[in-house]
Design a protein around this nucleic acid. Structure first.
Lengths: 110, 110
DNA sequence: AAAGTTTATCGTAATATTGCAATATAAATA
DNA sequence: TATTTATATTGCAATATTACGATAAACTTT
């Protein structure tokens, strides 16, 4: 079908899935890494840094923004994108949960 | 196209993308949470806990296993699945990197 | 105003994902 | 050995994703 049955899962599970899914593409990871590297909002050359066509990069940026992992403002004829820490905060607790679990894990059969 | 241009990205970026993508589905998050909750390898009732048909759950388990997020052994006529901490270790450093960045972030225009 | 620059959107093709019914496989048990 | 139980695989339909050319939109510069 290709359609995810979100109705059957909790809001948190769906929210986390959206965030993880957004990270789940090498181009989007490369974009996030680039935004961290330059540490500035004059990011007009993201397209030049990517091995993808401009419309494709634009689409990936849109997805990152929709997921809440980056934020951006219009600045003249350039767009200013940067990391949105709020999005990452939401994922953090999930990984802390995993971390916590693995430290106290009792079973060891696998 | 639907095909990801993995060739143009680094091995790390692709590896991380695979892991994040595997987490990027509510059913797979629910499975991971369940495995943590029960903290045992007698996990034969994952299917009963999920609002999905048995073949669908089996497929999601397979994807989690392929990504290295869970591991499993055959135990009689039941399968023993549990969290594979190695997979999560690989993601951890990426989030630490993000965390580190947001703490020292200089720009604040967005 | 015209031309240039930069990013977004539209349309489309190719491939991937999701989900399930049907069936297969494999071990446990009667 | 036949039946039951539990998981995996196959095959398929519906939808989603990825990528890009063409074009639009919006601002800058000449």
């Amino acid at each position: 079908m290709g359609i995810t049955k979100t109705d059957h899962f909790t809001g948190k599970q769906n929210e986390l899935a959206v965030l993880a899914k957004a990270i789940g593409h090498p181009a989007r990871i490369a974009i996030l890494e680039y935004l961290m590297k330059v540490d500035t909002c004059i990011c007009g050359d993201i397209v030049n840094e990517m091995p993808l066509a401009q419309p494709t990069v634009s689409q990936h940026l849109k997805e990152l923004k929709n997921a809440g992992l980056i934020k951006g403002n219009i600045e003249g004829n350039a767009i200013c994108y940067c990391i949105n820490e709020e999005g990452f905060e939401k994922i953090k607790s999930f990984f802390q949960q995993i971390d916590n679990y693995t430290k106290n894990k009792k079973n060891d059969c696998c």
